[in-house]
Amino acid sequence: MTQQLLPGYLIYPGSSSERSLLLQFMQQSYREIFPEQNFAHLARTVEQYFSRDTPLWWVEESQNSKVKSQNTIPDSPEKVACLWVGNAVDQVKGDRHTYIFLLYVKPEYRQRGIGKALMRYLEDWARTKGDRQIGLQVFQSNTLALDLYHKLGYQIQSHWMIKTLEEGSREQGRAGSRE
């Protein structure tokens, strides 16, 4: 069911046949933050988690908006944003809640309210499911997203920490403990 997300933009559910396009959006999202990395492994993430239970929505410019700006009707509308969600469990309370796998707006469509409108759309959708919270993970360097989430009332609940392990350091640690 297609509906207006905000003036000039439509939102509609994605389908399982759009795995490759979802993967392209996901890879582009990561490349913007980490341009030197290869994100081939994201195909495994999409393959493992994309299902009927993990809804996907696409955003396109409405045809009326395109006709006004270009004086022509395009053959196929361009997808300008997507939102992909699943479920997670709150590790403190044990409650199941909506979890955002990906919210991506193409760079040339940012600062138009699309991300904010997608978040509001998702909050309404999650409420209808009976969810009482929405979770997400955002990279610390993604300041535009962090700013949006803070403005919408999202708060930091935890910090995800990692340590890169050097090859052979485990063996060195064992050898060091014997001496």
Score class of each variant (00 low, 15 high):
Ser76Lys: 15
Gly113Lys: 11
His41Phe: 11
Ile156Cys: 09
Trp160Arg: 09
Thr45Lys: 03
Gly86Trp: 05
Gln133Cys: 02
Trp84Thr: 03
Asp75Gln: 12
Ser16Ala: 15
Ser51Tyr: 11
Gly173Asn: 14
Cys82Gln: 04
Phe50Asn: 02
Glu60Arg: 07
Gly14Tyr: 07
Ser177Cys: 08
Leu103Asp: 04
Tyr9Asn: 11
Glu167Cys: 05
Gln4Thr: 15
Thr45Ser: 12
Glu179Val: 15
Gln133Gly: 07
Val59Arg: 05
Ser17Thr: 14
Ser29Asn: 13
Ser62Thr: 06
Leu23His: 06
Val46Trp: 03
Leu148Trp: 02
Tyr9Val: 04
Ile156Lys: 10
Ser141Val: 12
Gln70Asp: 12
Trp160Tyr: 10
Glu166Leu: 10
Ile73Phe: 05
Arg112Ala: 09
Glu32Trp: 02
Glu47Gln: 13
Trp160Phe: 11
Ala126Val: 03
Phe50Met: 06
Tyr12Pro: 06
Gln37His: 13
Tyr154Thr: 00
Ser141Asn: 07
Ser15Glu: 15
Tyr154Lys: 05
Thr128Val: 08
Leu83Phe: 00
Arg178Gln: 14
Lys106Gly: 02
Leu42Met: 06
His97Arg: 11
Leu21Ser: 05
Lys68Tyr: 04
Asp53Ile: 01
Arg178Pro: 04
Tyr12Gln: 15
Thr164Arg: 12
Ala175Phe: 06
Asn71Thr: 07
Asn38Gly: 04
Lys79Trp: 07
Leu83Ala: 04
Gln91Lys: 08
Leu146Gly: 13
Tyr104Trp: 06
Ala81Lys: 05
Ala175Pro: 00
Glu18Thr: 06
Gln48Asn: 12
Gly173Phe: 15
Gly86Tyr: 06
Leu83Asn: 00
Cys82Ser: 05
Gln91Met: 13
Asp90Ala: 06
Cys82Trp: 00
Gly115Ala: 12
Gln3Asp: 04
Phe25Thr: 05
Met119Ser: 11
Val59Ser: 07
Thr72Pro: 00
Tyr30Val: 02
Tyr99Gly: 04
Ala88Thr: 12
Arg19Met: 08
Leu152Trp: 00
Thr164Trp: 09
Glu123Gln: 12
Ser20Glu: 15
Pro7Ile: 01
Leu10His: 12
Gly173Trp: 15
Tyr121Gly: 01
Val59Trp: 03
Lys93Pro: 00
Asp90Leu: 03
Ile156Ser: 11
Gln91Glu: 15
Ile156Leu: 10
Asp147Phe: 10
Val67Gly: 01
Thr45Gln: 07
Ala40Pro: 02
